[in-house]
Write a protein that binds this DNA or RNA. Structure first.
Lengths: 207, 207, 207, 207
DNA sequence: GATGAATGAGGTTTCATTCAT
DNA sequence: CATGAATGAAACCTCATTCAT
């Protein structure tokens, strides 16, 4: 079935073209101020065509967020799983985050801006999924912390709090980089962030 | 002019009643899904009356965000300024944040949800103000870091990065607390967060 | 409460103006080809205003049909109840129908054309109401037939069939009058119709 | 040209398959709520194919109505023409109507529901045709009445009024049968209807 | 000054029709 | 010829804002 295959491929291609346009516009204008007409214009597809790929504006948005988010989380996980020791995993986590951001500025803009969730009467599905994914990811980081503690690379402490802290440090740098001039590669800061997380900011000797 | 004064007071009272209702509704439904009619119903003022206090829906929202934000930042600043040493300032910063969140869950919900900024064609004023305030606040934290380094309470390091890290750690705990069951007082974690920030998570001795 | 009363009256006035326009347009173009914009233009009210009186186009249509239908049936009933003997009741029934039609050509056009019911996924409510009313009305006519039989003015026969027949004869004349040139008053035919219904069309003596 | 003939036959076969599906769907959902996609799905032909048989949705509908209507009228005429005397013709008319209804419930549903005519800006052609056919049919019935009067089977009276009356009685019974439980054969009522039409409902002796 | 009915621009979505494959 | 994805006009409806009372 060469023909069917070709069709399927073209379908996926168009679908992803739409999604790419969608990310860009949603990211710059937010969900509510973006109109289907704009997505239509910018993507080159007629409005009706958009509705053949996505059943509604909300569905288009939701799908876009979910796919992007899944890709981000799974991409990061994969890389982190490649490392063996806790410290290496942590370093890889920071590195993957920074890489992702540098390559997906549009999406991050949108997401960090908090547009992640559209409040809609009942369809709190997206919001719930986003939160669930976030907490799952925290569980994942928590796992790394436990490993670090078990292998004596990290000191013993509430692993949830450690996970939150690591994520918080990473996120704050990303936001800072995005708001300020991002004229230097974010990745330059990986080591710096890692050191702060591991050793804290307190003076070496305090007694 | 007793009368003028009384009028002025009544005016301020009404204005603040509206703002209080606005926070609640905007926080639960977001900017776009909230209608002026709802704010009118819930506040008990006629729609027309709302327009005598605020020139537009956007203005009402913007004003509300700004006032809340200013109160938050200045409240925190004030408390932090009360402390003398860097470490105490840091501790106070964490404590004030946690206190504020516990007393303003509605607003934080809205803000953490990222609804902080409404993208509107030209009036990016709010967005800019929010960002400016955020960066100002980072400057403020950065100042504390410098002080800590100058007084040898903190080790020498890029103070901006330290500021971001501190804020990140704080924010992550707030978000975690809000998403998960907040059945324990957030303030319980102040010390824990402080320790992580100062000493890091690495094992004490590793050589 | 003079003021409230006046407001209520004006509200009802406007509402009925809209309904009058609606009958006219729906009657001439049918439900689906009529647009809210047209009703807005013809009635002089803005589109938004229409929605303050009726929650949807369907609701406007449904309301209009129901009110008109109720008025028709109750008006006819009232007049018929005023007569004592079965034959007089029948005559009055025919007369009232003809009168109603002459004074409500628009509505009858719409209704006889069968536009009475809009097929809409689930909201078969209107259709059901129309049918229920119709059957109720048949019950009412059947009652007259029974009375006629009891008082020996009508010969003994299935009263339901008699009811259907009477209604059928009346309706057919109405339709005929509406489709052909209605340059003579429909009421002229009352007696003629009555005679046919009572005596049939067969030759006087057939044995 | 065997091939051409075969092709022609297949063409007619497909065309009639489409029409059969169309009657069913249009009858159950009405003209406007039925979509070409549905007819395509239910008939098994692609949308584009439908347009090779009928130039538009309206044309498909119109054609369907016209063919069905023509078949109905001509079928009835044919049977009635087979009878010689006026009374027999009348009986046959009633009988044929009832038969047709019992065998074409879908179509009758649609038609009695009044969906017979689609109001469309200019193309009032269908509406006009339907009316013309109806009036023609009335002429035909009027002819029977005249014959009856000429041969002294019917009493002298305005033949148009008689025609309307007969049709009205027939129609009312059909509608009644369709709205109420049609668990008895409609044909059972032929004689009953005939008697009412011929002898009326008045008591035998009234002087 | 307070009110809330009226307004109408603008957004989402549907679906008959076309045309390249 | 058959197909069915692409098209875009047009409809319904919402809701911020105004203004007469």
């Amino acid at each position: 079935m060469e023909k069917t295959k070709r069709k399927e491929m073209e379908f996926q291609l168009r679908r992803s073209e739409i999604l790419t346009t969608a990310v860009k516009i949603f990211a710059s204008k937010g969900f509510y101020t973006t109109t289907m007409a704009e997505i239509s214009d910018d993507s080159g597809f007629a409005i009706g065509t958009l509705y053949q790929f996505f059943e509604s504006k909300e569905n288009l948005y939701t799908t876009m967020i979910c796919e992007k988010l899944d890709m981000m989380y799974s991409g990061i996980r994969e890389k982190v799983d490649g490392a063996e020791h806790a410290i290496d995993k942590i370093e890889m986590l920071i590195k993957s985050y920074f890489n992702y951001v540098e390559n997906n500025i549009d999406f991050c803009n949108l997401f960090i801006r908090g547009e992640g969730t559209i409040p809609s009467e009942e369809k709190t599905q997206l919001r719930e999924k986003v939160i669930k994914d976030y907490l799952n990811h925290m569980d994942f980081i928590e796992g790394i912390m436990r490993l670090g503690m078990d292998t004596a690379y990290l000191r013993v402490c509430d692993p949830r709090i450690m996970a939150y802290s690591l994520f918080g440090v990473i996120r704050a740098h990303i936001v800072g980089w995005m708001l300020e001039n991002h004229d230097y590669p974010l990745s330059d800061k990986v080591d710096c962030v890692l050191q702060i997380f591991l050793r804290g900011v307190g003076a070496e000797v305090r007694e």
